[in-house]
Deep mutational scan, measured.
Amino acid sequence: KTVKFDGLQFDFDNPEKALKFALEVAKQKGAEVHIHGDEIKIE
């Protein structure tokens, strides 16, 4: 899975870790997590 935000991109082999990371970043930024297939966007 790939996590994208602020023009940055982070690749994870483990989908659970990717989602956990995305949710943590979103919480800190006050943003929402959007999942599109293998891509997780924080907006």
Rank of each mutant, 00 (worst) to 15 (best):
I40R: 01
D13P: 06
H34I: 13
I35H: 06
Q28E: 10
P15R: 08
E43Q: 10
K1A: 13
G30N: 09
L19Y: 11
A31M: 14
H36M: 12
F10M: 04
E16A: 10
F5G: 01
Q28M: 13
E32F: 14
V33H: 02
V33Q: 00
Q28L: 13
K27E: 09
A18G: 00
K41R: 14
E32D: 09
D13W: 06
G30F: 06
I40G: 03
K41C: 15
E39Q: 08
A26Q: 01
V25W: 11
K41A: 10
E43K: 09
V33F: 07
E24M: 12
F5N: 01
G7E: 04
E32M: 14
G7A: 05
E43H: 10
L23W: 10
G37K: 07
K17Y: 11
G30H: 08
V25G: 00
K29F: 15
G37F: 09
P15A: 13
I42E: 02
K29D: 05
D6Y: 12
A31Q: 08
V25L: 13
E16N: 06
E39W: 10
F21C: 13
A26E: 03
V33N: 02
L23C: 15
I42F: 05
G30A: 06
I40S: 02
L8D: 03
Q28R: 12
F10N: 00
K20T: 08
V33I: 12
F21E: 03
F21M: 03
P15N: 08
F10R: 00
V25C: 15
Q9W: 08
D11P: 07
I42N: 01
G37Q: 08
I40L: 07
I35G: 02
E39F: 11
T2D: 01
K27I: 10
V25F: 11
K17Q: 14
G30S: 05
D13K: 07
K29R: 13
F21L: 04
E32N: 12
H36K: 09
E39R: 04
D13M: 08
D11L: 13
F5A: 02
G7I: 06
H34W: 13
G37C: 14
E32Y: 14
E24A: 12
K4W: 14
I42Q: 02
D11F: 15
Q28S: 11
V33D: 03
K4Y: 13
A26T: 02
A31K: 07
D38L: 09
V3S: 01
T2S: 08
E16D: 10
K29E: 07
K41I: 15
G30R: 07
G30W: 07
A26R: 01
E32W: 14
L19W: 12
N14T: 13
A22W: 06
V33T: 02
A18P: 00
E24Y: 12
V25Q: 05
K17F: 10
F10C: 14
N14M: 05
F12H: 00
I40Q: 01
L19P: 03
A31Y: 14
I35K: 04
F12W: 03
D11E: 12
I35W: 09
E16Y: 12
E43C: 15
T2L: 07
F12L: 03
A31S: 07
Q9T: 13
P15W: 15
P15T: 11
D38H: 10
F21Q: 03
A22S: 01
D11Q: 13
D13V: 08
K1V: 15
L19S: 00
F21W: 11
Q28I: 12
K1Y: 15
I42V: 09
A26L: 04
K17W: 11
K27D: 05
V25N: 02
K27S: 09
V33R: 00
G7L: 06
F5D: 00
K17T: 13
I35N: 02
G7H: 05
E32C: 15
H34F: 13
E24R: 08
D11A: 12
N14R: 05
Q28N: 08
I35T: 04
K1H: 11
P15Q: 09
A31R: 09
I42A: 02
L23V: 06
K20H: 07
Q9R: 12
I42T: 01
V3E: 02
A31C: 15
L19A: 01
K41N: 11
E24I: 09
K20V: 07
E39I: 14
A31T: 07
V25T: 05
I35E: 04
A22D: 00
K1C: 15
F12A: 02
D6V: 04
K27N: 08
L23I: 10
K29H: 13
L19C: 15
E24L: 10
N14F: 04
V3T: 03
H36A: 09
K29P: 03
